[in-house]
Every structure is written in structure tokens, then in C-alpha cells.
């Protein structure tokens, strides 16, 4: 129980500082006091909160699912066929430093305002970390394990599904956690300017009505949901990687 005390105190300091600032500023639009933010939060919870969260989660799942799947597939192809790797590597190297957010205008051009923009952003943000990490993980698979599998009579397909992929899983998870962090941020950004559903859109909506307490309330929700998602991923990682002496139970 005591372990809750310390993180809580950090939050309390932050909240206290905010309240102080709102008293000093004395302008509820500029710095809304905590009570109004809380009221806005409660109000939001009774109205659109659930649908907003679900909409954002759908964007996340769609984009992340396709990004991760493509990343894994590309990694497998690049590991298997040197020629493919030669072509894909420079393209990946060039695209990787480009932030997902820079793609917003082109995404709006391609998909119009709606579900497409945030999903595309998450797809892009999750593709590269997973591709790079998966490729690295696959290339580092202990070749003796592959020989053992072949000796035991495994077909080529079985070697890929039951040896290579499980061996590369820790690396893939590292990439997944990275993409989740970056992707969540990019997605909210995308929803803010290019969507009509989701938490990012809700921030924009409150902004239109100059409800700063609404903006802050949504920001709080975004932060919490992001934190919960990462915690869930960490749990999944610990459970699936139980067998690993290094990763089982990592931070």
C-alpha cells in the first residue's frame, strides 16, 4: 500500500501547483481551476467519454494491427531474401526519421477527414519500430536452434512459425512498446486535425467552444488511457515471455 504513496505525492504536487497557478491567474479561461476541470470530466463521463475512448481505441487497434503485421512480414522477407533487404533497407532508413505527424496533410489528402487519418498515422508510427526490431530479432536467432528443429523433422514453414518467430518475440515486444508510445501521441494529433471521432477530436471540439476546462479534462483522460495501455502491454509481455530469463518480469 505504501508504494502508492510516493507516485501519488508527485501527482499531488502537480495538481497543487496547477491550482495555485489558477488562483494567481484568476482567469478561468486561461487557467481553469481544478473544480471546473473535475466538473467537465464528470460531465464528459456521462456523455461522450466512452464513445470517444472506444473510437480512439479502434483507431489504435486498426492502425497498430496492420502496422505490426506488415512490419513482421517485411522483416521475415528481408531476413530470408537478401535482395529484398537491399531494396527495403535504404527506403526504411530514409523514412524512419520522418515523424508520423508530418504525414498529416498527406493523410488528409488521401483519406479526407475521418477514421483514415489517425489510423494511417498509427500504422506508420508502428511499422518502423516493429520492422527494425523484428528484423534484428530474427537475424539474431541462434542457428543451433534452427538446426535442432530441422533435425527433429520440422518443415521450413514450421521452423518459421515455431522457432524463428518465438525467438524474435522479445525484440518484437521492445518494438511494440516503442510504437505504442509514439503511435498514441501521433494518433491523438491526427484526431485533433483530421478526424471526427476520438479523444483528439474531442480536444478540438472543446477548443472550438473555448471550454478550456473541457480541453484539460480530455488531456487528463488521454494521459491516463495512454498510461493504462502501456501497463497492459507490459503485462502481456511479462506473461508471454515467462520463459525468458531476461524478459520475464521486466520493467
Amino acid at each position: 500500500m505504501l508504494s502508492w504513496l510516493e507516485p501519488m505525492s508527485g501527482l499531488l504536487v502537480l495538481a497543487g501547483g496547477w491550482q495555485l497557478a489558477s488562483i494567481i491567474a484568476n482567469n478561468p479561461t486561461l487557467v481553469p481551476p481544478l473544480q471546473t476541470i473535475w466538473a467537465a470530466l464528470v460531465d464528459l463521463a456521462h456523455t461522450d467519454l466512452t464513445s470517444d475512448i472506444i473510437a480512439s481505441l479502434i483507431h489504435l487497434a486498426g492502425g497498430f494491427g496492420t502496422g505490426a503485421a506488415l512490419g513482421l512480414l517485411l522483416a521475415l522477407f528481408c531476413a530470408r531474401f537478401q535482395l529484398v533487404a537491399v531494396v527495403i533497407d535504404p527506403i526504411a532508413e530514409f523514412l524512419r526519421p520522418i515523424s508520423a505527424i508530418a504525414w498529416i496533410p498527406i493523410a488528409i489528402l488521401l483519406f479526407g477527414v475521418g477514421q483514415g487519418v489517425p489510423m494511417f498515422l498509427i500504422f506508420y508510427a508502428s511499422l518502423f519500430p516493429i520492422f527494425v526490431n523484428a528484423l534484428d530479432g530474427i537475424r539474431r536467432v541462434d542457428p543451433t536452434l534452427i538446426r535442432a528443429a530441422e533435425m527433429l523433422g520440422a518443415s521450413r514453414r514450421l521452423v518459421v512459425t515455431h522457432i524463428v518467430l518465438p525467438a524474435a518475440l522479445p525484440a518484437v515486444f521492445a518494438g511494440a512498446r516503442l510504437s505504442l508510445g509514439v503511435g498514441w501521441v501521433a494518433m491523438v494529433a491526427g484526431e485533433l486535425v483530421g478526424a471526427d471521432t476520438g479523444l483528439g477530436y474531442r480536444i478540438e471540439y472543446f477548443q472550438e467552444f473555448f471550454s478550456m476546462e473541457g480541453v484539460m479534462a480530455t488531456i487528463v483522460v488521454v494521459g491516463i488511457v495512454g498510461y493504462v495501455l502501456d501497463a497492459l502491454l507490459r503485462l502481456l509481455q511479462a506473461s508471454l515471455l515467462r520463459w525468458s530469463p531476461v524478459n520475464g518480469g521486466s520493467r
Partner: peptide, 29 residues
């Protein structure tokens, strides 16, 4: 080939499979 079974110096057990799952890998394949 499974007819020529190999024991490796570093055992080469599949770390993500339990003992029983390792043993049954050949028949599984």
C-alpha cells in the same frame, strides 16, 4: 533427418517451450 538424432553441446532446447513441449516437438512436427 529425424532418423539421425543430434544432441548439441549447448543442448539447443527451445527456451519458449516447457520440458514436455520440447520432448514432443519431433512428433508434433
Amino acid at each position: 533427418s529425424p532418423e539421425r538424432g543430434v544432441m548439441f553441446q549447448d543442448y539447443a532446447l527451445f527456451p519458449w517451450r516447457t520440458v514436455i513441449e520440447n520432448i514432443e516437438f519431433g512428433p508434433f512436427a
